[in-house]
Design a protein around this nucleic acid. Structure first.
Length: 955
DNA sequence: CATAATACCTAA
DNA sequence: TTAGTTAGGTATTATG
C-alpha cells in the first residue's frame, strides 16, 4: 500500500506558501535571477550612454531642497529650450485636467474681480518637458428653461450684471438671456450654488453668458425637442449635473490625453521672480508654467501625427515597514525602512532610474543606486524630494493607493517631516488622504483612500487589475506569475524586521526584494499595455485619464453623448434617477443537452446591441411619446414600432445621437484595424490595438447606459426595445436556419439549432467534417444576414467538434476557427474549470475529464479518472493540506455572522494575527477543517462506484 | 426533510 | 455625491 501522500499541483497559477522553496540562509545563495537582470540593465545603459552621450546638465535643477550629494543628473528632465512667446507655439500631451478657484490675471479672459474658476492642465512636450497650463475665462453654467419656475427677479439681476460685463460678446447676445439663462455649475464648491431656487454667487453671474452656448438652448426652447423623450418643461435644468472639467472639454473639443497647442503670441510664461507684477508667480514644479485664455487654446484631435504619446515619466515604487511580530504595520508606530524606486519613460523598454532608499547601511547592489539614511525622517524627506525632482507624470506600484502612499503620509506626519506631503506638481497644495467609497453593481462596494497629487496620475496596478481582470488571486506574486511567469523575491513577511535588524547584507537582501516589488508593477504595466490602453480609452471617450480609474462606466457615455448632442444643437436634460421595474433581457434557447460527436457550427451576431440601435435608429431623441404620432401627424413610413411597443422615428425624420455615436465608434474601429494591419512599428501597433479595443468596449457600453436605472440618463424604452429586437432576431435566426437547411431542400440532413444565447446559435447541420460545417456555416450566416436591416450582420464564427452541452450557459468543445484541420483551443463556458469558486482539485479533475472526453474522445476514460481521484480522496491518499479552496469574501465578516466557512476562517485569522487578516474583497485561501454531515456515511458507502464528484470537494 | 431564499459567479 | 444590463446555473442557508 502506498502511504505516501500525493502532491497535487495547484491550479490556476495559485501557489500556496507551503509549496514555495524556503530559503533559510540567504547569505549562502548566489545572486538571484532578478539581481542578474538588474546588473544587466546597468550594462545596457552604459552602452547607450556611450553611443548617445546623453547626460543632462545640472543647471536645470528644480527649486526644491537639495537631496544631499546623491542627486543623479539623469533624474532631471531634459533642460527647457529657450522659448520666445511671440514666435514659438507650445504643444504638449495633456495628461490631467482639473480646476481651481483663483483670481484674474491681466490680459486673460474672464471676470476681473473676485474669485474666478480656472482650468488647470498638466502635460508633457514631445521633448519631455513638463508643462502646467492655466486656462482662463471659462465659466461654469447650465441651461435653465425660462418657464420652469426660474424667478423673474433673478433674470433682471442677470441682465444688469450682463450689461456691465467685460466680455463684449455677451452684450450682443443679451436678448437671449430672457429666453435661456446659463447658471452656475453645481459642482463648484464654496459658497456657490446651482440654480435650484437657491442663491447664486454673484461672480458667476457675470461670467456665465458664453454666447455660442446660449444659442442651442434658445433654439431648444423655441422648438422643443420635437421627438425627444423629455419635454422641456419637465425639467428644471439641462446639463446641470455635468462636471466642470467635462463641460470644458466637451465645449472645446478636448478629449482626455490629447495634444494641446498654445499658439505663439497668445500665452504668457510664468517665472519664479516677482519682477513682473502683471504676470502671476510660478506655482507649480513644472518646467514650464503658462497662462492662456480658453478661446486661444487649440486642441488637436488624436489623429495622424497627434496620435503620438509624449515620453511620460512613470515612477513605480514600493515601501517596506518594520512591523511588530504578527501585527500589520501601523504608521504611528512602525517605521518605514526601505523605499525602492524605478522610473521609466513611456515607450522605452527599461527603467532609467533604479534606486532604493534604506534605513541603515546596505551593501551595494549592481544595477541599482543605494541611498542609505541614518534617520527615518531624513529618508522620508529625501524620498519626497526625489519624487519632486523626478517629476513623474504617472505614479504606479502595487496597492500604493490604499497602502504605500497613505502609510508614507501618515508616517511623515507622525515624524513631523514638514515638507513631505507635497507630492503633486503644485507647490502650495498639500497631499491629503481622503476616504471614499464607491459602489457599483459591476464592482461591488469598494472602500478606497484618495490622495491628491495634482498633475500626476496615480495608476495603482492593483486597481487596474481589479477593474480589468477576473483573477483567482490578486497578490503581486500571483499576478506576476500569471502574466509574467515570474515571482517575487523570496522573503517572508515575518522576517522583514529581522532582516532590517541584521547587518548590511541582510538589509541588502531586503532591498533586492523591495526593488523587485517596484520593478514588477512596471513590467506588468508594460506587458498589459495599461498606459496605452487607458490613454486610448480616454481619447476615444473624451474623459480625463484619472476618471477611468476613479469613476464608473457611465461618465464615458455621458461624455460622448454631450459631444454628439452639441453637434446637433441639443442639450441633455437632468433626470432624477429612481429605481423601477426591471425589463426583459435576452433569450437563452433551451439547450438540447448532450455529447455531440459531430461538428457544431456557431453563428454570432457581431456587436448585436449596437447594431440594433443603429439599424432602428433608437435614441433619446427619436423616441416618440404616446400621442406624439397624432400630434405631429407622422405617417406610418416615418416611424417604427419596436417589439416592446415603443415607437421611434426613422433616421429620415431625425437621426438619433446614439446611432451616430455608435457609427463613429465602429467606423473608427474599422479604420484602426486597417491601420493596424499596415503598421509595422510594434509600438504604434500596440497603440492602434489599444484603440480598436477601446472603441469596441465603448460601443458595447452604450446599451448598458440606457438601461442603468440609477444613472445620468436612463431610458428603458431604448434598452427594452434593444433586447426585444434581440429576442426576435435569435428566434428568427433559428427558424431560418432550420427551415432552409433541410433534407427536402437537398441538404444532407435537417439542421437543428441545439442551443443559443442572446446573439448566437449553435447549429447541428448534419455534416461530418469541420470544413463542411464551416462552409455551410458561412453561407448560412450570409443568407440569414440578408433578412435583417443593415448593419445587423450574422457571422460564422467557429465550429465546435466535439461539443459537450451540459446546460444553459454551461458547455465545452474543441474550437475550430482558423483551420479546419486542427483546433485552436478547448473552449469551456460556465463550467467549474472557469469559475473561481471551486477548489483547484475540482477544477483540475473536471479539466482532465473534459480533455479525455473532447480530445481523447474517451468518455469512459474520464469516468475512470474521476473515480480514481474520488477514490484517492476518500481513501485519504491525497494530502488534504494541499486542498486549497478559494472563495470571494465580498462582505464584511459581520454581515455573514460567521455562517460561512470562509467568514469563520477570516475571523480566526483575525484573532490569530490581525495583520494578515483578510480585507474586504480579498480572496481567502483555506483548507477543509471538517466535513459536512453525511460525508462520513457517504465515505463508508460504495464510493468506488460513485460517478459524481465527492461532496468533500464542495464542502 | 423538502422547498424557498440567497450568495456567488458566469454568459452574453 | 455616485453607481452599465438581464439570464441563469449551482451550492449553501433559512424556514416551515
Amino acid at each position: 500500500m502506498d502511504f505516501k501522500r500525493k502532491k497535487i499541483a495547484p491550479a490556476g497559477g495559485f501557489s500556496s506558501s507551503q509549496t514555495k522553496k524556503k530559503k533559510t540562509d540567504w547569505d549562502d545563495d548566489g545572486p538571484s535571477q532578478f539581481e542578474e537582470e538588474l546588473a544587466f540593465l546597468d550594462e545596457v545603459e552604459a552602452d547607450m550612454a556611450m553611443e548617445m552621450n546623453d547626460t543632462y546638465s545640472t543647471a536645470d535643477v528644480l527649486p526644491v531642497d537639495k537631496l544631499s550629494e546623491n542627486i543623479s543628473p539623469k533624474w532631471l528632465r531634459p533642460p527647457l529650450p529657450p522659448i520666445d512667446p511671440q514666435q514659438d507655439c507650445i504643444c504638449f500631451h495633456q495628461i490631467e485636467l482639473d480646476h481651481y478657484i483663483g483670481s484674474h490675471i491681466p490680459g486673460m479672459l474672464g471676470a476681473t474681480q473676485g474669485p474666478v474658476p480656472i482650468i488647470r492642465t498638466f502635460g508633457i512636450t514631445a521633448d519631455g518637458n513638463s508643462v502646467c497650463c492655466h486656462i482662463h475665462g471659462f465659466a461654469p453654467y447650465f441651461y435653465v428653461p425660462s418657464q420652469s419656475g426660474f424667478k423673474q427677479e433673478h433674470l433682471n439681476e442677470f441682465k444688469k450684471e450682463l450689461n456691465s460685463a467685460v466680455i463684449k460678446d455677451m452684450r450682443s447676445n443679451k436678448d437671449n438671456i430672457s429666453q435661456a439663462v446659463l447658471a452656475v455649475d453645481i459642482c463648484m464648491k464654496e459658497n456657490m450654488y446651482g440654480y435650484h431656487g437657491k442663491k447664486i454667487n454673484p461672480f458667476l453671474k457675470i461670467t456665465m453668458a458664453l454666447p455660442r452656448l446660449i444659442a442651442p438652448a434658445k433654439r431648444l426652447l423655441e422648438q422643443g425637442i420635437r421627438f425627444g423623450t423629455f419635454p422641456v418643461h419637465c425639467y428644471q435644468a439641462f446639463e446641470a449635473n455635468i462636471d466642470f472639467e467635462i463641460r470644458f472639454m466637451v465645449d472645446n473639443d478636448i478629449v482626455g490625453c490629447n495634444w494641446l497647442e498654445l499658439p505663439a503670441g497668445k500665452y504668457r510664461i510664468r517665472n519664479d521672480g516677482d519682477s513682473n507684477n502683471d504676470t502671476a508667480k510660478k506655482m507649480s514644479l513644472a518646467q514650464l508654467e503658462v497662462d492662456i485664455s480658453w478661446a486661444d487654446l487649440i486642441s488637436h484631435p488624436a489623429e495622424g501625427e497627434w496620435q503620438k504619446i509624449a515620453p511620460l515619466r512613470v515612477l513605480s515604487f514600493d515601501i517596506e515597514c518594520a512591523g511588530r511580530k504578527g501585527i500589520f504595520p501601523e504608521p504611528d508606530k512602525d517605521p518605514v525602512i526601505q523605499i525602492a524606486n524605478m522610473v521609466m519613460r513611456q515607450g522605452e523598454k527599461d527603467p532609467f532610474v533604479r534606486n532604493v532608499f534604506t534605513l541603515g547601511t546596505c551593501a551595494s547592489i549592481v544595477g541599482s543606486q543605494v541611498l542609505c539614511f541614518e534617520k527615518e525622517d531624513a529618508l522620508l524627506k529625501a524620498w519626497a524630494e526625489f519624487v519632486r525632482i523626478i517629476d513623474p507624470d504617472i505614479i504606479t506600484g502595487y496597492n500604493i493607493q490604499n497602502f504605500d502612499v497613505p502609510y508614507l503620509i501618515n508616517r511623515a506626519h507622525t515624524l513631523k517631516v514638514g515638507n513631505f506631503p507635497f507630492l503633486g506638481r503644485m507647490r502650495n497644495i498639500k497631499s491629503v488622504i481622503r476616504d471614499s467609497s464607491f459602489q457599483s453593481k459591476q464592482m461591488g462596494r469598494r472602500e478606497n483612500k484618495v490622495i491628491n497629487t495634482e498633475g500626476r496620475v496615480q495608476f495603482d496596478l492593483l486597481q487596474v487589475l481589479l477593474r480589468d481582470y477576473k483573477l483567482r488571486s490578486y497578490t503581486l506574486n500571483a499576478v506576476s506569475f500569471h502574466f509574467l511567469q515570474e515571482q517575487k523575491e523570496d522573503v517572508q513577511h515575518s522576517i522583514i524586521t529581522d532582516l532590517q535588524n541584521g547587518n548590511e547584507q541582510t538589509r541588502r537582501r531586503l532591498a533586492v526584494y523591495c526593488l523587485k516589488d517596484a520593478y514588477l508593477p512596471l513590467r506588468l504595466l508594460e506587458k498589459l499595455m495599461c498606459v496605452i490602453n487607458y490613454m486610448e480609452m480616454a481619447r476615444v471617450t473624451g474623459v480625463p485619464l484619472n476618471y477611468l480609474l476613479s469613476r464608473g462606466q457611465q461618465i464615458k457615455v455621458v461624455s460622448q453623448l454631450l459631444r454628439q448632442a452639441m453637434k446637433q444643437d441639443l442639450v441633455m436634460p437632468v433626470v432624477k434617477s429612481e429605481g423601477g421595474e426591471d425589463y426583459t433581457g435576452a433569450t437563452v434557447i433551451e439547450p438540447v443537452k448532450g455529447y455531440y460527436d459531430v461538428p457544431i457550427a456557431t453563428l454570432d451576431f457581431s456587436s448585436l446591441y449596437p447594431s440594433i440601435m443603429m439599424a432602428h435608429n433608437l435614441c433619446y431623441t427619436t423616441l416618440l411619446q404616446s400621442g406624439s404620432i397624432d400630434k405631429y401627424g407622422l405617417k406610418p413610413e416615418e416611424f417604427i414600432k419596436t417589439p416592446t411597443g415603443d415607437c421611434f422615428v426613422k433616421s429620415s425624420v431625425r437621426k438619433g445621437l446614439l446611432p451616430e455615436i455608435l457609427e463613429n465608434l465602429l467606423s473608427a474601429r474599422k479604420r484602426a484595424k486597417t491601420e493596424l494591419k499596415k503598421e509595422t512599428d510594434p509600438f504604434k501597433q500596440k497603440v492602434l490595438d489599444g484603440r480598436q479595443l477601446a472603441l469596441k468596449v465603448s460601443a458595447n457600453s452604450v446599451y448598458g447606459f440606457t438601461g442603468a436605472q440609477v444613472g445620468k440618463l436612463p431610458c428603458l424604452e431604448i434598452s427594452q426595445s434593444v433586447t426585444g429586437f434581440g429576442r426576435q432576431m435569435i428566434e428568427k435566426t433559428k427558424q431560418l436556419v432550420e427551415s432552409k437547411y433541410t433534407l427536402t431542400n437537398g441538404y444532407k440532413a435537417d439542421a437543428k439549432v441545439i442551443y443559443g444565447d442572446t446573439d448566437s446559435v449553435m447549429c447541428k447541420l448534419g455534416v461530418q467534417t469541420v470544413s463542411e460545417a464551416m462552409e455551410i456555416g458561412k453561407e448560412a450566416a450570409e443568407w440569414v444576414s440578408s433578412h435583417f436591416t443593415p448593419p445587423i450582420k450574422l457571422e460564422f464564427e467557429k465550429v465546435y467538434f466535439p461539443y459537450l452541452l451540459i446546460n444553459k450557459k454551461r458547455y465545452a468543445g474543441l474550437y475550430f476557427s482558423s483551420s479546419a484541420k486542427t483546433h485552436d483551443k478547448m473552449d469551456c463556458k460556465g463550467i467549474e474549470t472557469v469559475r473561481r469558486d471551486n477548489c483547484p482539485l475540482v477544477a483540475n479533475l473536471i479539466n482532465t475529464c473534459l480533455q479525455k472526453i473532447l480530445i481523447d474522445r474517451d468518455p469512459m476514460g474520464a469516468v475512470e479518472h474521476a473515480k480514481d481521484v474520488i477514490s484517492d480522496l476518500l481513501c485519504n491518499r491525497i494530502d488534504i493540506s494541499q486542498l486549497v479552496i478559494t472563495k470571494e469574501l465580498t462582505r464584511t465578516a459581520d454581515e455573514y455572522a460567521g455562517k460561512q466557512a470562509h467568514v469563520e476562517l477570516a475571523e480566526r485569522m483575525r484573532k490569530r494575527d490581525p495583520g494578515s487578516a483578510p480585507n474586504l474583497g480579498d480572496r481567502v485561501p483555506y483548507v477543509i477543517i471538517g466535513a459536512a454531515k453525511g460525508v462520513a456515511a457517504y465515505m463508508k458507502s460504495e464510493h468506488k462506484k460513485c460517478e459524481n464528484l465527492c461532496p468533500l470537494c464542495y464542502q
